[in-house]
Design a protein around this nucleic acid. Structure first.
Lengths: 195, 195
DNA sequence: GTCTATAATTCGATAGAC
DNA sequence: GTCTATCGAATTATAGAC
């Protein structure tokens, strides 16, 4: 019984440090995702988490370390190994489209992407995530040679969609219904894969 | 003879106001393109232009108005009306690829794109440029119905390339030789156009 | 564990001399 | 037309009380 040792003190007077830390991190991810690094302030993170700004410093040391921690994310890539190669383009596009439609503001990939365009450190983290998560997932489904050929362009296509539809919100793309977007994007990805 | 009325004064003691203004604007575009809006300071713009920061304020009033002026750019889209439809995908991809390879840091489209991801005003300007420059240019070459169908997805593909190769610099895309990139991208754009 | 108070910078913007 | 000097606001970060 090492956890939760309330013996005599008040019922709910003290909050867990882990909870506070998690709340700060959640607020930080929200704000970094919506505004990028520079426009996000320690004060705003604290306010969003319902605590004093100095607590943010106490738990994370500096704004930059908070940012680094917020960028350490799991891309949550699915397993495509059981998908037949002919159906892979649709499976990939559909997966990301459904993901982003459901919760674009919360998606770790979009959080990272927005910051990576103006912040060098975030860009490095995106490079790492690509090498450590995207490449292995694609290699399992396509084999190493095909990945070397198409991984870059495929990523550009999917991230291009993300940037234009969810970040910049260009009306010509943001207004399209998901099904139509899917129908127009799948042939492009298929052409890349089979090129 | 209304211009340049140096009658008795020294030879080159006075600088033209237009020259100073142009120098400021050039430095501002460089810095906004490289760092985005927030990280670019009036002081840095002045230093890059070789003049005092207060001159920047004198000529442009505020940082925000300087930014707006820097964003008022001509996308320099070529005329695609004489290109046969079958060759259009290659012509479009080749045009932007050659443009960006030659001078990615100076390209007005990339300047705008980098800021648009984190700055709402820049995003609005990108929307305007798309509606007033991209759509008319594509309409002349494809006709209005085709543009409504494919302009969004085509833009997503080209801007996706720009983001991943020139802004985020993902090695899997940034390291590809231009010819190979062209070969992999043209089929994708063709599939979009013919879908 | 939480907050107040404040130090130390940095930045946008203004006023005014030359 | 150019610069010096400076104000006022906002920010990160620290020290310390409760």
């Amino acid at each position: 019984m090492t956890t939760s040792e309330e013996t005599t003190a008040g019922p709910a007077a003290r909050r867990s440090g882990d909870d506070t830390r998690a709340a700060i991190l959640r607020s930080a991810r929200d704000l970094f995702a919506a505004q990028g690094y520079e426009r996000t302030t320690i004060r705003a993170v604290g306010a969003a988490a319902g605590i004093d700004p100095s607590m943010v410093m106490r738990y994370f040391g500096s704004k930059e370390r908070l940012f680094e921690t917020a960028l350490a994310v799991d891309l949550r890539l699915p397993d495509f190994t059981s998908v037949p190669r002919a159906e892979l383009p649709e499976a990939v596009v559909r997966h990301f489209l459904e993901r982003w439609e459901a919760a674009p503001a919360d998606d770790p990939l979009l959080i990272m992407l927005r910051s990576a365009v103006t912040n060098e450190r975030a860009a490095e983290r995106l490079h790492e995530a690509f090498a450590q998560q995207v490449v292995p997932a694609l290699t399992a489904a396509l084999g190493p040679e095909a990945v070397a050929r198409v991984a870059g362009v495929m990523s550009a296509q999917l991230l291009g969609l993300a940037v234009v539809r969810y970040l910049v919100r260009l009306p010509a793309v943001a207004a399209l219904p998901p099904e139509e977007l899917l129908a127009r994007l799948v042939p492009a990805v298929r052409a890349t894969l089979e090129g």
